[in-house]
């Protein structure tokens, strides 16, 4: 009897492994796509950064802008 190395069973198993592999790749693609879409849809990033109450560069810029605007406003009131 000649031993066959490749049997139909192996093809079926390979098909199953390939199928599962494609499902996993698809899942990675979906999570990646969702991440991109959600992050791009966040709007003004400064709002998110402010959520943890920790000073951050963009928060400092906002604070500086606000202070400048208030100073300008006070200047206008004084005239």
């Amino acid at each position: 009897m000649v031993l066959k190395v490749e049997h139909e069973l192996h093809h079926r198993r390979r098909g199953r492994n390939l199928g599962l592999g494609l499902v996993l790749v698809g899942f990675v693609a979906i999570v990646f796509g969702l991440t991109v879409v959600k992050v791009l849809g966040l709007g003004d990033i400064r709002v998110i950064e402010g959520a943890d109450h920790v000073a951050s560069p963009t928060q400092e810029i906002i604070a500086a802008e606000r202070a400048a605007a208030e100073a300008a406003g006070a200047g206008e009131d004084g005239e």
């Binding site: 049997h7 139909e8 069973l9 079926r12 198993r13 098909g15 199953r16 390939l18 199928g19 599962l20």
Partner: peptide, 12 residues
């Protein structure tokens, strides 16, 4: 045993 083993399509 071999005829029984499921392919990917069986799970689908």
């Amino acid at each position: 045993d071999m005829t029984r083993e499921a392919g990917f399509g069986d799970f689908v």
